[in-house]
Write a protein that binds this DNA or RNA. Structure first.
Length: 505
RNA sequence: GCCCCUUUAGCUCAGUUGGAAGAGCAGCGGACUUUUAAUCCGUUGGUCCAGGGUUCGAGCCCCUGAGGGGGCACCA
């Protein structure tokens, strides 16, 4: 490997190309020596975390007789002449390799010296601590498990360029602790949800992503096409309508954690594909699912970060405490000083909106204007967790009318840090009323509202078989992860966020 | 879709008034038996995002475009 001929690419290329060429030469030299630079497997006896938990308290300058076989990636190397110190990392931890020329012999020492940062290795050795007390594996044997051809990002600063971090998430995960932390939090939250729901006898199901009707939410869908059936299809914008069909079918408690797609803008809070958890519980109403929401959030925080106290825009919030509940119309009254209600005339509400510089459209009814007033005046100020309830019927076509007020629904949206995180309601289960609501949606769509829904005849047929009273809930898992992991952008909680295609040379 | 910011070595970043493109890390060569962002000596490495323009001269000024970020709009 040191005697690569002068004709090798490494001597003619520059920069990154030279670095790759040098490492490729190295791979070729290993093969010439009969060493497979990409062997098939390695028998590991311990993870690095297991070693740390068993021997973390070892006194400085101690050598045990514990033989281990560990595997990981070489991140740092400190060549000290006849000693080499290297930092090895596996999925959860790092440990130092201690390599003594006197122990491993000249040949292996030279091969270890030749390792590049980024190489994967399998190591045999014994557990020890150095004079300074650093837990280490004293290497007796080492084999290359996979050669890295490209140099790692900066060993101290990691990868900082946002573009590169999102496009080359592998490099981000290698070099940035925080990236690894955030995705560990994300996994812990999802695992926590599954445990909480399993304990409540919910059944996890999978429903179609390809929809003939894009219903269950107000959003512009993606379209696609099936070749053999020669038909247009939508990617789902919500899980709702299929899950409720399952409640009709008698499954009683169902949930799905799945990807939904909305063909809308991209922002620090919006990715075109994102993950929703939706659940439906027979015999319950919106009060039941508000309680479940609080329980899911508190358990997820506890499981993911070990505490229910989180920071929201500089405000310390304890998710274990009940969330504030307030009606949408009361929030609008607080902000405007005027009592509002969907029973009021469109004209009166339109002039109130104009007073507060809230733009309205001609086809909007009273309920839609109230919701716009709420979004413009009150939403951004809801920092601590707040259930906003009592949405107008006009903007909630799948929610059941409030048992005490025919103009409002038994619906809530949960806001934290000024962002919507969850949405739920007492589900409308009267097929006759549901048809009327769908027909209103259809009219709005025909009037040019691309986000409006259509009449889903199969869903109506399902409701005609009878759906028990049901409470439903949807939670945006990406936003919940942002909240608990305390990161400012949704791209930091999605492994591969949507980007324009990279131009490769 | 509109507005603002940004793009310099593999990575992290400087670059003054428009006057010879730099540092640290990584790499390469050398020293070093308890280092830990090891240290020390030497050293390679550039389409300054792309294309135009102004100028004796452009990384820097102007125009157009591209990627990314933020805001608005849309939305969860």
């Amino acid at each position: 490997m040191t005697d690569s001929p002068d004709t090798s690419a490494a001597t003619t290329e520059h920069g990154l190309a030279a670095e790759r060429a040098r490492r490729l030469d190295h791979v070729a030299a290993l093969r010439n020596d009969g060493t497979n630079p990409y062997p098939y497997r390695f028998d590991r006896s311990h993870t690095l975390a297991e070693i740390r938990s068993a021997h973390g308290g070892l006194q400085a300058g101690t050598e045990t007789e514990v033989a281990v076989a560990v595997a990981g990636r070489i991140l740092l190397k400190r060549d000290q002449g006849k000693l080499i110190f290297a930092t090895l990392r596996d999925r959860d931890d790092e440990i130092q390799l201690f390599v003594s020329r006197a122990v491993v012999g000249d040949d292996l020492f030279a091969r270890i010296d030749d390792l590049d940062l980024g190489d994967w290795v399998g190591v045999h050795g014994i557990v020890m601590t150095t004079r300074k007390g650093e837990l280490s594996v004293k290497v007796s044997g080492l084999e290359l498990l996979a050669k890295a051809l490209r140099p790692l990002p900066d060993k101290w600063h990691g990868l900082a360029d946002t573009d590169t971090r999102y496009r080359q998430r592998y490099a981000d995960l290698i070099s940035n602790d925080d990236a690894r932390r955030v995705f560990a939090v994300r996994h812990a939250i999802i695992a926590s949800f599954r445990r909480t729901l399993a304990a409540k006898d919910f059944v996890e199901v999978e429903t179609p992503v390809l929809h003939v009707e894009a219903g269950g939410a107000h959003a512009r869908p993606f379209t696609t096409h099936h070749k053999t059936l020669d038909m247009g299809l939508y990617l789902r914008i919500a899980l709702e309508l299929h899950l409720k069909r399952l409640v009709v079918g008698g499954m009683e408690r169902v949930y799905e954690i799945g990807r939904v797609f909305r063909n809308e803008g991209i922002s620090p809070r919006h990715n075109p594909e994102f993950t929703m958890m939706e659940l439906y519980q027979a015999f319950g109403d919106y009060s039941d699912v508000m309680a479940i929401t609080e329980e899911l959030f508190a358990a997820a925080a506890r499981d993911a970060i070990g505490t229910t106290v989180i920071d929201v825009n500089g405000l310390s919030v304890d998710l274990a405490e009940p969330f504030r509940r307030v009606r949408m119309i009361d929030l609008v009254r607080e902000k405007t000083g005027v009592a509002v209600h969907p029973s009021q005339s469109v004209e009166a509400l339109r002039s109130l909106a104009a007073e507060h510089n809230v733009r309205t459209e001609a086809q909007w009814g009273s309920g839609k204007i109230i919701e716009e007033l709420f979004e413009a005046l009150a939403e951004h100020a809801l920092i601590a967790p707040t259930f906003v309830t009592g949405h107008p019927v006009e903007t909630s076509p799948l929610a059941r009318v409030d048992r005490n007020d025919p103009h409002l629904t038994e619906r809530f949206e949960l806001f934290v840090g000024g962002r919507e995180l969850a949405n739920g309601y007492s589900e409308l289960n009267d097929p006759v009323e549901q048809r009327l609501r769908f027909e209103d949606e259809q009219r709005a769509k025909e009037a040019g509202n691309a986000e409006a829904g259509t009449v889903d005849e199969d869903y109506l047929r399902a409701l005609e078989f009878g759906m028990p009273p049901t409470g439903g809930l949807g939670i945006g898992m990406d936003r919940l992860t942002m909240l608990i992991a305390n990161v400012p952008t949704i791209r930091d909680v999605i492994l591969f966020p949507t980007l324009r295609p990279e131009v490769l040379d």
